[in-house]
């Protein structure tokens, strides 16, 4: 693994999480466009993140909790305690 690959791997999470500055983003992106092995690692990690989000976003608040919050929001709080 070359220096560029190593530097890219170190920045990969930041790149995926949109935490890098513009210059860093350009650098990582240029390398990924150029280096299929690194690009594949990135695709896989990004796929993991999407998977976690998709799987964990399926739960919705129960209707009774939603109603309770609505009452609180509309100024009729009925604290359960």
């Amino acid at each position: 693994m070359g220096d560029h690959c190593q530097q890219t791997m170190q920045k990969l999470s930041g790149y995926m999480d949109r935490e890098l500055n513009d210059a860093e983003v350009r650098k990582v992106k240029a390398h990924l466009d150029d280096c299929p092995p690194c690009e594949q690692v990135f695709e896989f990690q990004a796929g993991m993140k999407r998977l976690v989000r998709r799987e964990c976003c399926t739960d919705e608040a129960p209707p009774r909790l939603r109603d309770w919050v609505r009452k609180l929001a509309t100024g009729h709080p009925k604290p359960a305690e």
């Binding site: 964990c56 739960d59 608040a61 909790l65 939603r66 919050v69 929001a73 100024g75």
Partner: peptide
């Protein structure tokens, strides 16, 4: 306060991951 209402699903699903139990998650929210 109605501004806060829309986050009930996000809070609940995260509460579920933290408490692992629906009744505890509801209570936490």
């Amino acid at each position: 306060f109605s501004l806060f209402e829309r986050h009930v699903d996000a809070l609940y699903r995260s509460a579920l991951r933290l408490t692992r139990k629906p009744e505890d998650a509801e209570d936490l929210v």
